[in-house]
Design a protein around this nucleic acid. Sequence first.
DNA 1: TTGTAGGCGTTATCAC
DNA 2: GTGATAACGCCTACAA
Lengths: 340, 340
Amino acid sequence: MASIKDVAKAAGVSVSTVSRTINDNPFISSATREKVLKAIKELNYSPNRMAQSLSNNNSYTITLIVDIENEKSFYNSFFYEVMHGIEKVVYQKEYCLIVSNLNTVLKNENVLDWLIKGRRTEGVILPSSIIDSKTIKKLKENNIPFVSIGEPENLRETINWVDINNRKAGEQAANYFIDNHRRKIAFIGYDDSKVFNRRRFEGYKLALENNELNYETNLVIKGGNSKNDGFRMMKDLLNEKDLPDSVICADNLMSIGAIRAIQESGLSIPEDISLISFDNSQIAEIMYPTISTINVDVYELGLQSAKLLFELIENPGKREQELLISTNIEERETTEQEHQ
Amino acid sequence: MASIKDVAKAAGVSVSTVSRTINDNPFISSATREKVLKAIKELNYSPNRMAQSLSNNNSYTITLIVDIENEKSFYNSFFYEVMHGIEKVVYQKEYCLIVSNLNTVLKNENVLDWLIKGRRTEGVILPSSIIDSKTIKKLKENNIPFVSIGEPENLRETINWVDINNRKAGEQAANYFIDNHRRKIAFIGYDDSKVFNRRRFEGYKLALENNELNYETNLVIKGGNSKNDGFRMMKDLLNEKDLPDSVICADNLMSIGAIRAIQESGLSIPEDISLISFDNSQIAEIMYPTISTINVDVYELGLQSAKLLFELIENPGKREQELLISTNIEERETTEQEHQ
DNA sequence: TTGTAGGCGTTATCAC
DNA sequence: GTGATAACGCCTACAA
């Protein structure tokens, strides 16, 4: 492998001159630049990133921490798309993206410590689910910029984070039904222990208020996000004396059980009951009927988080930011367009 | 940040002595080792990986190449699990895992070239879908060990790969039905342009032959893997005069449409027609009915590929290997246990 | 505009 | 056992 010395020799210049052309230093004559460029090409030279790292004290690397054991934090296609967005900007900056599992332990310390102490990372992106004050303290003490994907829960300290605009998403779902002359809009799977869920619910309530609709507590069902939870919650709803004409599912998996419950009761979707869920995962498209969703642009979420991270890297003293990605509605078979 | 010099000074020894203790060199007295260890602890010292990289000419990094644009290669949860397995091994070896998208282009070259030329990777794991002779040539010329995830298609050269034992999986599916006294076993979604699909079909045929069952061409339906493909293929099958009593779906998505077609025809699952698909994705569990599958241990696939890669790194001249991960059956609602 | 030389933090080769 | 010292490949004052 050719080194900078070989190039210098071949071009008949000094190593500093080669270094200058590599780094686009303007104080260099175009004649010598050409000579160097020619030599570089001939020797198929490329700077050794490890040497540059050492010299510049920059690992040119960003870390994405995943909480793999915890399916909830970065599950399946969600994670995939997020990573795709992150990857895009990281390599554009000529950095590398390293991925590691939060729970990995090596040399008696967790990966994050290990990466920081080994000076292997210039910044970290991590899901809000794993953020706690200890982790924050560590990152801050070591001057490692970081961005949370997802709004962090219960956090006194201000940090940088990017999330879906969940409140707006909840509002969007409710407004969609209202625009379509639905009046008894249920919200199932409410779980106030989760920020994103709470936000969606807030948006739902807000939309109702803005349209002078009564907020009916019996149309709000608390519960988890499994398909069985969805089934049970919908059953509960259908046992009430006055039925909803539309349902918002707080999360995507529960919608499958909810749909099943409606079908079993003999009611039809979307005529009797219209239904909307969140996330535009593959699942929404393969069900019978296909599920209308508030479409979450997860790629964009990843992209923006990485962009924010580089802003922090490039301008150290920057103020904390919160960034919300907007959503849009994707109409499928559980709703019907009937705007008049 | 403390460097090796600081430690040497604090311990009252030379840098070489510190280096020796770090690297567990046996030629060192336990007295001085203690001194050094103490200094290391006090200064919270950790070797700078970038400096080690330069000195040892080892990036301590493995690359996982993903073909993100092509959903088929590493889609969704499949990819997630594979990466999990890889990650496990890589960090155990105190390496880092970097992930990059095949299609990323920077400085007019693709990531792989960029990573190789920058000496940033010691080995590569990549999906068989992106393997061609040009890529292989490049990796071999640069002495970068690599492992393919998935059996490569149409390849003269021998390379290292790890895959699910798809032939065995197909055999398993068919044998399962045979053991349950099914005799008219259909195979839908056959697509001989894909290795994994072909292998599953081979296994299916093999099982029939071994049980002296007639192989009936009208029970084999060619087609793609969308839910609509599955629906159409099943419809075709149901239009035949003699119906199958069981169906093997060559891939997982098509099973959803196939089930739908059976339900619409008024036949019951699994009584009239029993059905098995592949991959144990989330999808199999959330459908009504839940889908029995030949369970693919994707985590293990990732784990083994990384292990193989490290074998290659540690023993350069090693012969090419092919590794098959075995599968097992996961019975859900589309089949019923009736072993007698 | 270019070249020389020292430094980044390690490891490895020699002496002692 | 231990300690100088060169080397890894690059960058960057500083000098010319």
